[in-house]
Structures are given as structure tokens and as C-alpha cells.
Amino acid sequence: MNLKDCYIKFGGDFDEVLGRLRREQTIQKFVYKFLDDKSFLLFEASMRNKDYAEALRAVHTLKGICQNLSFTRLFESSSLVTKALKENDWKQAGDMMPQLSKDYYEIVQAIEELKSSEGE
């Protein structure tokens, strides 16, 4: 699997991020760093603890990362959750968590597959 295939797999826009970051090596570096980002895990924990201010901060951070890396599908789901939390609609935000989680873990899995394919 190459980087462009990885983007296709998780619903990202490779051409857009390439236009912004210019080099595949740069994109790949930041894509790999995404695996170390704790925003999603902090969001989940904050929602469980009903700390909605912290959940908003975390999902907003995730949304920004996704926008910068053109992770389109995850950007869209994190944008919807961000909007719900800004409007204090905790129920709607909670109802959208399964989709957000699915989108997040699809990206993580695709990136891990990309990393493992490099060693082959």
C-alpha cells in the first residue's frame, strides 16, 4: 500500500493535502504522527465523564488536525460533533460518537497497514 492508497482507504483527499504540504515525505511524517495524537482518546474519556468543555476542546483539536491532513471523512464527523457540543446538545454529540469512532479507527488501521507495508 502506498500513501495515496491509504488516503483512498480512509476517505481522505490526497491531492488536497499534497497541494498543501507539497511532498509525500512530509505528508507521511504527519500521517504517522497522527497515531501519537491523544485528542480522540481525550474526547472519549471526557464524554464518558460528562466533561463537555474538555470534550469540545479535544474534538475541536481533532477536527483541526483532520482539516490540515485532509482526513475528509473524520473531519466531517468531528465537525458535526464539535457543532453539537458548541450548541450544548450533549445527546446529539453522544449519538454521533459511534460514527466518529468508526471514522477514527478506520484511519488508524489504514495508517498501521501503511507502516507495516513499508517493511515488506
Score class of each variant (00 low, 15 high):
Tyr32Ser: 09
Ala93Ser: 07
Gln109Tyr: 15
Ser78Gly: 06
Gly12Asp: 01
Asp5Thr: 01
Ala93Cys: 04
Gly64Phe: 09
Val17Pro: 00
Phe10Ile: 11
Ala58Met: 04
Leu69Thr: 03
Glu16Leu: 10
Arg23Ser: 06
Ala93Val: 09
Gly119Glu: 15
Phe71Asp: 03
Glu118Met: 12
Ser101Met: 11
His60Ala: 06
Glu87Asp: 15
Arg20Tyr: 06
Phe40Gln: 07
Leu80Gln: 14
Val108Leu: 13
Pro98Lys: 04
Ala58Val: 11
Leu80Thr: 10
Ile65Cys: 01
Lys91Gly: 03
Thr26Tyr: 08
Lys91Phe: 13
Ala58Gln: 00
Gly11Leu: 02
Lys38Met: 13
Thr72Tyr: 04
Asp37Cys: 12
Glu16Trp: 05
Val81His: 06
Arg48Ala: 13
Tyr104Ile: 08
Thr72Gln: 14
Asp89Arg: 11
His60Trp: 06
Leu74Tyr: 07
Ser70Asp: 06
Ala45Gly: 03
Asn68Ser: 05
Ala93Met: 05
Glu16Cys: 05
Gly119Val: 15
Leu56Lys: 06
Val17Glu: 03
Gln28Tyr: 12
Ser77Ile: 05
Asp89Leu: 09
Glu87Leu: 15
Arg22Gly: 04
Lys29Cys: 07
Lys33Gln: 13
Leu21Tyr: 03
Ala45Arg: 12
Phe34Arg: 07
Phe34Val: 08
Leu18Gly: 01
Tyr52Pro: 05
Ile107Pro: 02
Ala93Arg: 04
Ile65Ala: 10
Leu100Gly: 04
Thr61Asn: 07
Arg48Gln: 13
Ile107Cys: 14
Asp5Ala: 06
Gly11Cys: 00
Asn49Ala: 15
His60Gln: 05
Asp95Ser: 10
Glu44Trp: 07
Lys4Pro: 00
Trp90Arg: 14
Phe10Trp: 05
Ala110His: 05
Asn88Tyr: 13
Asp103Leu: 11
Phe40His: 09
Asp15Thr: 05
Phe10His: 03
Gly94His: 06
Met96Trp: 14
Leu42His: 13
Lys102His: 09
Cys6Ile: 09
Arg23Asn: 07
Leu18Asp: 00
Leu35Cys: 07
Leu100Ile: 01
Glu24Tyr: 06
Cys6Glu: 02
Ala55Trp: 08
Arg48Trp: 11
Gly94Val: 05
Leu42Asp: 13
Asp89Trp: 13
Val81Gly: 02
Ile65Gln: 06
Glu44Gln: 14
Leu21Lys: 07
Arg57Tyr: 13
Glu120Ser: 14
Tyr7Ser: 03
Glu112Phe: 12
Leu21Trp: 02
Asp89Pro: 04
Val108Lys: 14
Asn68Arg: 00
Gln109Ser: 15
Gly12Pro: 03
Met97Tyr: 14
Asp5Ile: 02
Ser79Trp: 11
Lys4Val: 01
Cys66His: 08
Lys29Met: 06
Phe75Ile: 03
Ser70Lys: 03
Asn2Tyr: 07
Gly12Gln: 00
Ile111Ser: 09
Leu21Asp: 01
Gly64Thr: 08
Met97Leu: 10
Phe43Lys: 08
Asp51Gln: 10
Val108His: 11
